[in-house]
Every structure is written in C-alpha cells, then in structure tokens.
Amino acid sequence: MEAFTIHTGRAVPLRRSDVDTDQIIPSDWLKRIERTGFGAGLFSQWRTDESFVLNNPAYAGASILLAGPDFGTGSSREHAVWALQDYGFRAVISARFADIFRGNALGNGLLPVQLPAETVESLQSAVEQDPTVEITVDLDAREVRGAGVAAAFELDDFTRWRLMEGLDDVGLTLRHEEMITGFEGARPGWLPTTV
C-alpha cells in the first residue's frame, strides 16, 4: 500500500448525495480479474453525459474528490476504490461515507476524509468558482487546508499510523499468529466446517 502523509492537489466537486458503488464502477467492470485498469470505468455511465463534472476539462488532473453525503453506499466492491485511485484520486472528502467503502479505501491508501456538510459545500463552491484552487489534505496534522478553509478531521491514531507507514493489514495481523492459533484451540466442537 502506498503511504499517505500529506497531499496537495486540485479538486472536483461532485454535488450528488448517495453515490453508490454501482455508479462509481458499474458491474460490467467487475468481471475483470486484475487489480488495475479500472480508471476507465470510473463513473462510466455518468461520463456518457457531456455535462458530467469529470468531463469538464477544467478539472482534468484533479486528485481530490469533493463528494456529497453518503458516498460509496451499496455493493462492497473494492473495485470502486481501485477505480478512483487508478483515475488519479488520492482522497475523497464527504460528510459521510458508507462503512464498507470507507474500510476498503483505508485498506488501499485512498484517504476518506469526513468533514461537516457545510465545510464540504464551501470547498465545492470554492473549486466551482476557481477550478485551479489547490487543497491540502494533511494526514499528519489531520487537517484539510485551502480555499479559505482550515478544517480538522478525525481519524484514530492507529489507522493514521498504518496509512502513514503504508502498512498492509495481513502483515500486521500475522505478527499475532500465536494468538490466532490459541483462539482456534478453544473453539467449540459443534461449530460447522465446510468440508
């Protein structure tokens, strides 16, 4: 996983609530067995509409998505995170994220930043007025800065450390393998097996 410490970039305003993962990456794209190449599928149904914000050349190269509330609802597909990253996004800012999407993003180093709805809206307005405005997402300080805004966001110390170090969970967990083995030895015998 690529480490995340601080990122500065331009941002795209996506003024829609309840953006589900079927919109982020439609199911046609889920048939692929690779982890890469999903950027072309990002919002692919909406991108057929010329007026969709990602089709606006002013936002080309932006790396922060300013989304409406309840972003990433629905399907657990991690492909949604892979698509956002492959397209070039490093962080998504929203008033609320769906739980599974948030977990998937944190597992891949795409930073989900939760800020109050009015703060997200003022950032959206600022980049709508001037698409060249740069925004900084500072994980070290747990703060978003830019466009006249300086807003603190919450993220627990452990998750922050893991992201800043770029550590993957499997490696961290396997440090405790003896405890897993110990737990397994105490499981009741009536629990089912699949074979």
């Binding site: 991690e78 995170v81 599974i100 998937n104 597992g107 627990d156 969970d169 499997v170 396997l174």
Partner: peptide, 23 residues
C-alpha cells in the same frame, strides 16, 4: 455477518481473522 472488500477477503483467507472496530 457482514460484507467485506477484496483486501479483507485476502486477509481472512490468510489469517481467518479481521481487524475491526466495534460498530
């Protein structure tokens, strides 16, 4: 019972565990 992403699928396949914060 809850849904997980592919990185977590890998984690469960490898360790039969999952790090989770209690909802």
């Amino acid at each position: 019972a809850f849904g997980i992403g592919t990185s977590q699928v890998e984690h469960v396949l490898a360790t039969q565990t999952l790090p989770q914060r209690r909802p």
